[in-house]
Nucleic acid binder design. Structure first.
Length: 112
DNA sequence: ATGGTGACGTCGG
DNA sequence: GCCGACGCCACCA
């Protein structure tokens, strides 16, 4: 029942995350806004938590609106998220994506 | 039922 | 620019 609703919600979120280009990042709020969830970015975070270890979803490309790696804790190893980003050429310093503004990928703009 | 918590964000001060 | 309040909504004790 509600599980199906959640499943739909998860699918929507994951689908967008999968569209984030390698070497770019997006935010919880941007995803929520694109899905018409107004400003319940928390739900996006909740969805991401549900897929934390799942394959095929580049969860490391989702950061908060300041470009900070607030979800690093949920990657098993706290360093994992940063490593994944750096492996894509993204520079991370003090848990913050450098040049964040330039790397930001907004579904509402770049997606048709 | 209720209050606290959280991968968040906006607004005031 | 930092801090607190508030809005958000699912989850958990």
């Amino acid at each position: 029942m509600t599980m199906e609703k959640h499943a739909d919600f998860f699918r929507d979120v994951y689908q967008i995350v999968k569209l984030v280009p390698k070497g770019r990042v997006t935010t919880y709020g941007a995803i929520g806004e694109y899905l018409g969830l107004r400003s319940s970015a928390r739900m996006v975070g909740w969805a991401m938590h549900a897929c934390a270890t799942q394959e095929g979803v580049p969860a490391h490309r989702v950061v908060n609106r300041n470009g900070m790696l607030t979800g690093k804790i949920h990657f098993g190893n706290p360093m994992r998220m940063q490593e994944l980003l750096e492996a894509e050429g993204i520079e991370v310093k003090e848990d913050k994506v450098q040049n964040f503004k330039h790397l930001l990928w907004l579904p509402s703009k770049e997606l048709l």
